[in-house]
Design a protein around this nucleic acid. Structure first.
Length: 402
DNA sequence: AAAAAAG
């Protein structure tokens, strides 16, 4: 960290926060950001992207007393997390980030650690698009002095759902500014959409080393998936898990079912009030809940250290979504596990993912918790190294193709 | 198709 050109007080803060040796992306990106030009930073999940832009931008803010930084994120949870890391790294109080996101009115009391500073004093603002625009329109925040902007999960922010808001938001910033796009994925359409916001960006995309995420699929028909998820969870009680579902309703229903069978499950989706969302995050991060049942709200960016495994109840349609979901485990080089439950009619989505990622997933034998008792049935094998096709269908009835 | 994001 000390050789990258950062102010000594920043490397000291980094060290204090447990960041000593820089990750490859940090070594590559920090000097480029310090240089002041636009950048496109593409690095795997859990590789330390947040610090890789926060540290050099803080350095630039120390050198230029009038400038400010805006970090945009696609979810409230991610905005909170980035702001929290910013607080850890800030060498002076005025560099402590101010978090801006919706749902704050739902707070029963002042949210811990969030929105606890004044936007006038803060020189780093971290927020979600809607709330940033809202505050701007009500003159409660002035983005014109933001000479640096980070589009975290930039491909997501460039997607059609955020397009209008981003097109309204970005022109409000200083016209002469540094724009940094960050993500683990940048499909061509998103890169194209980002073009008008980036001026001759330098692309920083280090060779992706071997992933520390062990991936597998299990063929299970839809009706048996909850019991299969339970079996996977019980087989590794030491691994806290995020279980991804396709809808808010499914999240609630699955969490309820798992709880009924004795598992400590919290639920997280965008239909909950912000206090409930915060509570779910807190319960899971503290370990009071060992399972987090979530929609794709939780797919991107969230860095919860003790996530040992990710379960996809259904293969996601977009390969990018798969990459981000499984990236909630195996952070910072730790080993993580990702298991996707796949019904016969979902095999094409699975193939699409395998093709996009140039991987061939290991097939696990189908395993179902017994419906009457919450006891796992454990296969005699412990190996993930089974050959594909060996146990397709498993002991479930052979599902018909749709 | 569903997810999130303003109130």
């Amino acid at each position: 960290m000390a050789t990258l050109g950062l102010a000594p007080r920043l490397t000291a803060m980094a060290l204090q926060a447990g960041l000593d040796a820089p990750t490859p992306i940090q070594s590559r990106a920090i000097p480029v950001i310090l240089d002041g030009g636009d950048a496109e930073i593409i690095a795997p999940t859990g590789a330390g992207k947040t610090a890789c832009y926060l540290l050099p931008l803080m350095h630039l803010l120390l050198a230029r007393r009038a400038a400010r930084v805006l970090v945009v994120a696609p979810t409230r949870e991610l905005a909170r997390q980035i702001a929290a890391m910013g607080r850890q790294l800030a060498p002076t109080p005025e560099l402590r980030p101010f978090a801006v996101y919706g749902g704050a009115h739902e707070e029963a009391e002042a949210p811990e650690g969030a929105q606890d500073d004044t936007p006038e004093r803060a020189r780093i603002i971290v927020g979600t698009p809607g709330r940033l625009l809202d505050l701007t329109r009500r003159d409660q925040i002035d983005l014109a002095s933001c000479r640096h902007v980070v589009l975290d999960e930039g491909d997501r922010l460039m997607s059609p759902e955020f397009r209008d808001e981003m097109h309204d938001l970005l022109p409000l910033l200083a016209p002469q500014r540094q724009t940094i796009l960050v993500s683990a994925t940048l499909p061509p359409a998103a890169r194209e959409a980002s073009r008008r916001f980036l001026y001759k960006p330098q692309t920083i995309a280090p060779e992706t080393g071997k992933t520390s995420i062990r991936q597998a699929i299990m063929f299970v028909e839809a009706a048996q998936k909850p019991l299969a998820a339970e079996a996977v969870l019980r087989r590794h009680p030491d691994r806290n898990a995020i279980v991804f579902v396709a809808s808010r309703d499914e999240a609630g229903a699955l969490a309820k079912q798992l709880r009924k069978r004795g598992l400590k499950a919290a639920v997280l989706h965008g239909g909950l009030t912000q206090p409930d969302r915060n509570r779910a995050m807190q319960e899971f991060a503290s370990g009071r809940a060992s399972v987090l049942v979530a929609t794709d709200l939780a797919a991107r960016g969230l860095d919860i250290e003790q996530v040992g495994q990710v379960i996809n109840m259904t293969p996601p349609e977009q390969p990018e979504t798969y990459v981000h979901r499984i990236g909630r485990t195996g952070r910072a080089g730790r080993v993580g596990w990702a298991i996707t439950l796949c019904a016969m009619n979902e095999r094409s989505a699975m193939r699409k993912i395998e093709t996009a990622l140039s991987i061939k997933l290991t097939v696990l034998p189908t395993e179902i918790s017994t419906p009457e008792r919450a006891t796992p049935r454990v296969e005699p094998t412990t190996s993930l190294a089974r050959k594909r096709g060996r146990s397709e269908g498993g002991r479930s009835k052979s599902p018909k193709t749709a």
